[in-house]
Design a protein around this nucleic acid. Structure first.
Length: 276
DNA sequence: CATATGTCCTGAGAGC
DNA sequence: TGCTCTCAGGACATAT
């Protein structure tokens, strides 16, 4: 489930294509239902082949490749992977791009579940089509005052609010549980009632956990699909205090971790460290 | 407007 | 062994 740290790691892993020309774009034959690619592949080829990659950047949980005057936006969603290395299997490669130069490079967008998407937009359209109305400030660049104000303005529980990309971009289910544990806040706490003191703790935990997870090159879970730039698993999963650890002892206090469901998603927390 | 729910998809694992 | 069922969750569409 690529979240901010995993997507950031993917971006760093493909940065070698900056300055390269797109030699070809193709959609490998696949027995699965095709993922959403817009506009159609023929248009993408026409607009990108022969063009030069100028920049790779992350927009929330999306990988953005600026090529020519366009931005190619890859959204891995649940099981997607963007890599210049080999991918877990050839069967789920959804898009392939070859780059000329030495050595030749091949970028693959691999996605087992196929919920991911590919979109090519004019660079000038990215703000209006992707950001406006859909994405809040990035979790790594938001200022505390803004973070605090945005939380104060919603009546939802803190865990559910952290997953809202319009409120804050980049945090997903795994890191939301982890940062709440680090900040010692109960996942069902109402945002609007959180003290400034607690919000400061959460803000600090968010920055340090996302930073650390990027340094560990993300989390590779049991299904093993996510890989870093070198095609190795990330290692942040070994640092998880609560995520997917129901029934195991809290690393801080030893009490059993609990699992609850909020908005149809699993939440993990320590009932002692994160008392109401 | 804010918030809640249903949906897409495939593969792993449980249970029988 | 092999079948069926459930579950994982990001983000969007639709409903309240």
């Amino acid at each position: 489930m690529p979240e901010l740290p995993e997507v950031e790691t993917m971006c760093r892993g493909i940065r070698e294509i900056v300055g390269r020309q797109v030699a070809s774009v193709s959609q490998p034959r696949c027995r699965y239902r095709p993922i959403s690619i817009t506009p159609r592949l023929a248009s993408i080829k026409k607009r990108t082949q022969g063009q030069t990659v100028s920049k790779i950047w992350r927009l929330g949980k999306r990988v953005v490749i600026d090529v020519g005057s366009d931005s190619l936006i890859l959204q891995p969603k649940m099981t997607g992977l963007v890599s210049l290395q080999s991918v877990p299997d050839p069967d789920h490669v959804r898009l392939r791009m070859e780059f000329s130069g030495r050595p030749p490079l091949t970028l693959q967008f691999w996605d087992r579940r196929g919920l991911g998407t590919v979109e090519l937009l004019k660079q000038a359209e990215v703000q209006s089509r992707i950001v406006d109305g859909r994405l809040g400030p990035d979790a790594l660049s938001i200022e505390f005052e803004d973070f605090s104000r945005r939380l104060a303005a919603t009546g939802r529980s803190i865990k559910v609010a952290l997953l809202d990309q319009k409120l804050l971009a980049g945090v997903g289910n795994l890191y939301a549980s982890e940062m709440l544990h680090a900040a010692r806040i109960h996942p069902e706490a109402r945002c609007a009632r959180l003290s400034v003191h607690r919000k400061r703790r959460l803000y600090a935990a968010m920055q340090s956990i996302l930073d650390l997870a990027i340094r560990y090159e993300g989390s590779t879970l049991a299904d093993g699909t996510y890989r870093n730039a070198l095609n190795d698993p990330g290692s942040y999963q070994n640092q998880h205090a609560v995520y997917d650890r129901a029934g195991l002892p809290c690393p801080t206090c030893g009490k059993d971790i609990l699992r609850i469901v909020q908005a149809q998603r699993s939440t993990f927390y320590c009932p002692r460290c994160q008392a109401r």
